[in-house]
Amino acid sequence: MDRTPAPVRPVPRLVATDIDGTLLGADRAISPYTADVLARLTARGVPVVLVTGRPVRWLKVVYEQLSAPLPAICANGAVVYDPVSDQVLRADPLAPELLAEVARRLRAAVPTASFAVEIVDSREMRHEAHFPLRWETDPTLIRAIVAPEELHSVPAVKLLVRAGEQDPDLFTAVVAEALAGLAEATHSSGSGLVEVSAAGVTKAAGLAWYCTRLGVTAPEVLAFGDMPNDVPMLTWAGQAVAVGNAHPAVRAIADEVTSANTEDGVAAYLEQVFGTD
């Protein structure tokens, strides 16, 4: 019998977690238990970073449920946001010329595609008139446009693509093939929405930049996620944990699997690692 002890992992110096489907429960709320665990971690001096596909403007709902706002990597790594100063520390958008070429390629590959763009560091959104919105909108922040050229007239940290009801994995593959070498394509939902970023822009890249500022290395990071847009971050981090409800692609590359988001899987795992003090 092999009695070699299992290697002991060092206690992480930074925790990075996705939000939707990972930290949030079925009602898209953070439970009091999870909020308390995160608060205790930050009080101990352990940085906790939200790493999300969400735009900056959607973070308010999350921050309202926490004892204090947490720094965030938004738009799948394109935006690094400091909520204390309400400042974007770094943005890596698609330039207008690149955005125009991305749109051209996608219209050729998927003639039925419709687009939206996250602009002003994801504080505002523009969308084609026929782009289906599946959430409540604020007309001061989300505006329909008519002329296609207006879509790519300014830099955008993310392009959103829909083409009716689509299998999200298959549709993402189609978009990725059309944009090979030009931009990144991923998805974070089951609705057939594909998210496009500039080449090299991923959750891993945004988190790596932020960690460098803090002097934290990849092996010192504990990361949680549930969807394909989390795969780069989980692959980069020293310790990758999938929640129990995670997409198969995430479970396949994770070091461990915790309980589902509806069971406070992130908080339960953090207590195992850091204790309950």
Score class of each variant (00 low, 15 high):
residue 217 T to S: 15
residue 155 P to E: 10
residue 126 R to T: 11
residue 52 T to M: 00
residue 41 L to G: 05
residue 27 D to R: 10
residue 97 E to T: 07
residue 55 P to F: 07
residue 261 N to W: 01
residue 157 V to K: 01
residue 201 V to N: 01
residue 138 D to W: 02
residue 30 I to T: 06
residue 264 D to P: 05
residue 59 L to Q: 02
residue 216 V to R: 07
residue 125 M to L: 13
residue 198 A to N: 04
residue 148 P to F: 03
residue 110 V to Q: 06
residue 223 A to W: 11
residue 230 D to A: 03
residue 71 P to H: 03
residue 57 R to W: 04
residue 199 A to M: 14
residue 97 E to D: 14
residue 66 L to S: 08
residue 111 P to D: 02
residue 112 T to G: 13
residue 56 V to F: 01
residue 56 V to G: 01
residue 96 P to S: 10
residue 134 R to V: 10
residue 51 V to Y: 06
residue 105 R to F: 07
residue 173 A to N: 05
residue 52 T to P: 00
residue 261 N to Q: 08
residue 76 N to M: 10
residue 59 L to T: 02
residue 242 A to C: 09
residue 201 V to D: 01
residue 124 E to V: 14
residue 189 S to G: 15
residue 136 E to R: 10
residue 95 A to H: 09
residue 185 A to H: 03
residue 35 A to V: 09
residue 39 A to Y: 03
residue 80 V to W: 14
residue 73 I to D: 11
residue 107 R to S: 12
residue 121 D to M: 09
residue 167 D to T: 11
residue 251 R to E: 14
residue 93 P to V: 02
residue 175 V to K: 04
residue 265 G to Y: 07
residue 232 P to Y: 04
residue 234 L to W: 03
residue 236 W to K: 12
residue 3 R to Q: 13
residue 168 P to N: 05
residue 213 R to N: 13
residue 252 A to P: 00
residue 143 R to T: 07
residue 130 H to Q: 15
residue 128 E to V: 12
residue 247 H to F: 06
residue 56 V to H: 01
residue 194 V to I: 03
residue 160 L to T: 06
residue 272 Q to N: 10
residue 195 E to Y: 04
residue 21 G to T: 00
residue 168 P to V: 11
residue 191 S to G: 15
residue 250 V to H: 02
residue 200 G to V: 02
residue 238 G to Y: 05
residue 152 H to C: 14
residue 155 P to N: 04
residue 186 T to R: 12
residue 99 L to V: 05
residue 92 D to P: 14
